[in-house]
């Protein structure tokens, strides 16, 4: 079997999902005798960074020969990936279920005529006959579904944070990747880009501090930010908080917002409505802080503090800082 891995970059830096993708592929298929793990870079990074993916088990990195992949465009990226898949004779493509992955995987499933297992949350179990069983969450985290995936050509996309990258191997060779001269004129034309500056992206974050209506108003958000700062966490919020413009829309988590599964989710002044839980309940550890001992969030929380957020937050922040300093 030959595996191709799609690795993402942003502004010339490897993204966290790039390491996860390599590790996901290597940890799953190296035990089954697969030796060739070729990475296709979605845009250019430094030669040294690319070779460094070998430290996670990649055996070859294909680096775009020009800048035509540097900004993400589904049309162009999927055409270049299809070409690389065909030239390499790969039968498996692994990628993260990020914004880019969500655009590319379905397009390639059609153009490469492959079976797509999307948003898988664990490495698959590979069966004797080469088929896999994979698991994903359904009904907004309220259920799990297990599928059998077979076929000559397969694509697997995994949810971010599904596994921790493991160091195994040494820097690997880097070779140029044909970008097909931009894969023809694109029918979309970029006008402007707004990047969220200096914040940990919510979908990548290992820790998330989230505030709800119990915080009373935007003037109290420095308490959420202070705690996030103390434990290198991203910030999130409930739907009413973004609807009232206390926080920007991109922080809204839940059924109609972003779905996340960080290692640690701290819910402050959030009641724990079913639509909110839909986006966060597969977090590994959940802490709820709420004045109401009957708040539904305590039913899913691992740790709870019944108390006023305005009082508890500074104390928790201080306790974390103390413990980090000791």
């Amino acid at each position: 079997m030959k595996v191709l891995i799609y690795a993402e970059q942003q502004d010339g830096q490897l993204k966290k999902s790039a390491f996860e993708a390599v590790s996901f592929a290597v940890q799953t298929w190296a035990p089954h005798g697969v030796q060739d793990f070729t990475v296709v870079m979605g845009g250019r990074v430094s030669e040294q960074d690319a070779a460094g993916l070998g430290n996670y088990g990649a055996t070859l990195v294909l680096m775009p020969e020009d800048g035509s992949l540097d900004a993400f465009e589904p049309h162009v990226h999927s055409a270049v990936l299809l070409d690389a898949l065909q030239k390499s004779g790969a039968d498996l493509l692994v990628m993260a279920h990020t914004y880019a992955g969500k655009s590319l995987a379905p397009r390639l499933a059609v153009s490469w005529q492959a079976t797509l297992a999307a948003a898988v949350n664990h490495p698959p179990e590979v069966q004797q006959d080469g088929s896999w069983t994979v698991q994903r969450t359904v009904y907004s985290n309220k259920g799990l579904a297990t599928y059998q995936v077979s076929g000559d050509r397969r694509i697997l996309s995994f949810t971010p944070n599904a596994l921790k990258p493991v160091l195994q191997g040494a820097p690997c060779p880097v070779q140029p990747l044909s970008t097909l001269a931009g894969a023809g004129a694109s029918r979309t034309h970029r006008l402007e880009v707004q990047k969220v500056q200096g914040k940990i992206p919510l979908t990548e974050a290992e820790r998330v501090i989230s505030g709800g209506r119990g915080l009373k108003g935007p003037e109290n958000w420095h308490l959420i930010e202070g705690l996030a700062d103390a434990c290198a966490a991203a910030t999130a919020c409930s739907k009413p908080v973004s609807d009232m413009h206390w926080r920007s829309h991109d922080e809204h988590v839940g059924q109609t917002g972003i779905t996340i599964k960080p290692d640690l989710y701290i819910a402050v002044g959030i009641s724990g409505a079913i639509q909110h839980l839909a986006g966060v309940s597969s977090s590994k550890t959940i802490v709820a802080i709420n004045t109401d001992p009957e708040a539904p969030f305590f039913k899913v929380a691992d740790y709870g503090v019944v108390g006023d957020a305005l009082e508890v937050l500074p104390r928790l922040t201080e306790a974390i800082r103390r413990s980090a300093g000791s």
């Binding site: 942003q10 993204k15 970029r190 006008l191 402007e192 707004q194 992206p201 990548e204």
Partner: peptide, 9 residues
């Protein structure tokens, strides 16, 4: 997009 937003035609 991851980490931001963009406007396209």
């Amino acid at each position: 997009m991851d980490g931001g937003r963009e406007k396209v035609e």
